[in-house]
């Protein structure tokens, strides 16, 4: 116990605080996912539109979100908007904005990929049966695209949860930040706390993400039909 520095976890409310930190990370990821999925479906569908202007704008948005490190986006929204626009966004709100923007971009690309993977024949058969375009999307294209999309979008959730470890940089007290605080506070009494606490954090991330990965794999198998 002493050598691994695990004993700090049982001091006071330390373990509960760690869980609370994980809760913050999960809350932001979950909210961002809830925004990203519908927004991503909308933008992804528009990305398959024939209008070249719409396509170009969405492509630009996607590329910017992908190229920019998430940390830069976080700084830009948290510090940048305060300086430039005078907004006083909290760390959590900034994090939610950044993760939603990034998640929407990633999601839209997944949706676009799923939609264009549906063969042209499916559209033509629907047209020959006189279904309208909205009917074709609703009954034929989306249900098929969704099957391909589900596992991919679940992987996006785990990526999001892992990336929330960055938000301590804008002052959000999530699981990594709580760990740092615990280690700092017990530097004298348990000098090995860093190992024990971060090991615990690793296991907590695993406990949060593993079931999600399993679900993704299960859905992937089912989608193969």
């Amino acid at each position: 116990m002493q050598a691994l520095g695990l004993e700090v976890l049982f001091k006071g409310t330390n373990f509960i605080r760690l869980l609370g930190g994980l809760g913050v990370a999960l809350k932001i990821s979950l909210l961002a996912v809830l925004i990203s999925i519908p927004a991503g479906i909308l933008l992804g569908t528009l990305m398959t539109a024939s209008n070249p202007v719409i396509r170009a704008i969405l492509r630009l948005y996607l590329e910017v979100m992908r190229i920019m490190p998430q940390l830069v986006l976080l700084f830009l929204v948290f510090f940048g908007t305060t300086r430039a626009l005078g907004w006083d966004l909290s760390g959590e709100t900034s994090a939610l904005i950044v993760f939603s923007l990034w998640g929407t971009a990633e999601m839209s690309d997944l949706v676009r990929g799923a939609i264009i993977s549906i063969p042209k024949h499916q559209y033509e058969s629907a047209a020959a049966l006189c279904l309208t375009l909205p009917q074709t999307y609703y009954h034929i294209i989306f249900p098929q695209a969704l099957r391909r999309l589900l596992p991919l979008s679940i992987n996006l959730i785990t990526r999001m949860i892992k990336t929330t470890s960055l938000i301590l940089m804008i002052g959000v007290v999530e699981v990594i930040k709580v760990s740092q605080q615990i280690i700092e506070a017990n530097r004298m009494s348990s000098p090995n706390a860093a190992f024990g606490v971060y090991l615990t954090v690793l296991l907590l991330y695993f406990a949060a993400c593993f079931p999600i990965s399993m679900l993704a794999r299960f859905l992937e198998k089912r989608a193969e039909i």
Binding site: S125, Q144, I225
Partner: peptide
Amino acid sequence: PVLRQKIGMVFQSYDLFPH
């Protein structure tokens, strides 16, 4: 859409809806 209802078409690659 109205006229097309009078035209039925079957394609080479039996395009049933797989789902």
